[in-house]
């Protein structure tokens, strides 16, 4: 069986290396990685952002400016609007003679803690001279924008894997070769697995290239592999369906772009929406895959967290597969 799966994969690879669209899909992860490197800032260009009321407490503002990027606003409403923007800005607002931290709810815990410490230090009148410096990890070993882009691209690459499968299925249909394959001892399962290999390998090799080129090469690769494999299941299922229902390569490539919608929805929900909206995206496997990848890329994910997110992705993808499996079976007849 392994020999036949390998033969089917080698055939696909041979054909894909002769096809311009497939070649483009095969090498796009590397182009994306280079683009991300070119257009995203480095970690030294990022800092913790605080939003304060203008003229409220000039000494506090001066103090905090030593440790963070401080933005000033005329009203509390303006501070709140700034806090609600997509980055992790913390508001420090006066209340009952003291100060409270205004947060959106989705800021990394380390940044909130950092803001708390700064406020306490100011209240305790601790000066720079009295402090010892210590490097502290704010869950930001990498620039957040870069991490977001790399994470999104990892999910995109898994979709490209599905797209490649769809192209190969369309080729089989166009040449009418499925009937010839069906009359060989390579059963349907062998054929499906053989056709899936190129999609999964694109996902794995493409992602590895991406993370190495963008400087994420030190992440836990096993955790990443786990999330990649479960995410690929969804892309593979959709790849087969689109391949079997499309009459030509352009239609198949166009149809599989339908997956971009839940992908973007998942990313935007996590990055831009507050806690109360998150539950509306729990159905989306890309939402959970993004969360898992986010922990992996920031090197803060425990195995239990990764297993939990992977299980959710696997469960949702499995349900999608069960729904699509009869159509795939029928299409391969």
């Amino acid at each position: 069986m392994i020999r036949k799966i390998w033969a089917i994969f080698r055939r696909d690879l041979k054909v894909n290396l002769k096809d311009s669209i497939a070649l483009y899909i095969l090498f796009i992860p590397i182009f994306l990685a280079v683009l991300i490197n070119l257009f995203t800032p480095g970690i030294n260009e990022t800092t913790v952002d605080l939003a304060l009321l203008e003229g409220d407490n000039p000494s506090q503002i001066s103090y905090l400016e030593q440790f963070a990027e401080v933005e000033l606003f005329k009203t509390i409403d303006q501070v709140q609007q700034r806090v609600e923007e997509r980055d992790a800005t913390i508001g420090i607002v006066p209340e009952n003679g003291g100060y409270y931290l205004m947060t959106q709810g989705n800021e990394p815990e380390g940044i909130v803690d950092y803001a708390k410490i700064l406020t306490s230090f100011y209240e305790l009148d601790i000066s720079m001279e009295e402090t010892n410096s210590e490097l502290f990890d704010f869950e930001r070993t990498v620039p957040p924008l870069k991490k977001t882009l790399v994470n999104t691209m990892i999910l995109l690459i898994s979709i490209l894997g599905g797209m490649l499968i769809a192209l190969n299925i369309v080729e089989e249909k166009a040449d009418n070769t499925l009937s010839a394959i069906n009359l060989t001892p390579a059963g349907r399962l062998t054929f499906v697995l053989g056709k899936s290999v190129i999609g999964v390998l694109l996902s794995i090799i493409g992602t590895l290239s991406l993370i190495v080129i963008t400087g994420f090469g030190t992440v836990n690769l096993l955790q990443l592999l786990l999330v990649l494999l479960v995410t690929s299941l969804l892309s593979i299922s959709v790849g087969f369906i689109q391949g079997l229902t499309s009459s030509d390569i352009m239609t198949a490539a166009g149809s599989i772009k339908i997956l971009f919608l839940p992908l973007l929805a998942g990313v935007l929900a996590i990055e831009m929406l507050g806690d109360k909206w998150q539950k509306f995206f729990y159905w989306n496997p890309f939402y959970w895959a993004y969360k898992g990848n986010d922990l992996i890329l920031s090197q803060s994910g425990t195995w239990s967290q990764i297993f939990m997110y992977s299980s959710i992705v696997l469960l949702i993808s499995g349900i999608v597969y069960l729904f699509l499996a009869p159509k795939i079976r029928k299409g391969l007849e």
Partner: peptide, 23 residues
């Protein structure tokens, strides 16, 4: 088959070599 059904992007030999591996 009545209608030819071979991989158009593969050479004649590649076509046959591929099927040989499936038996």
């Amino acid at each position: 088959f009545e209608q030819s059904n071979v991989y158009s992007k593969l050479t004649a030999k590649e076509n046959l070599d591929f099927y040989r591996k499936l038996f």
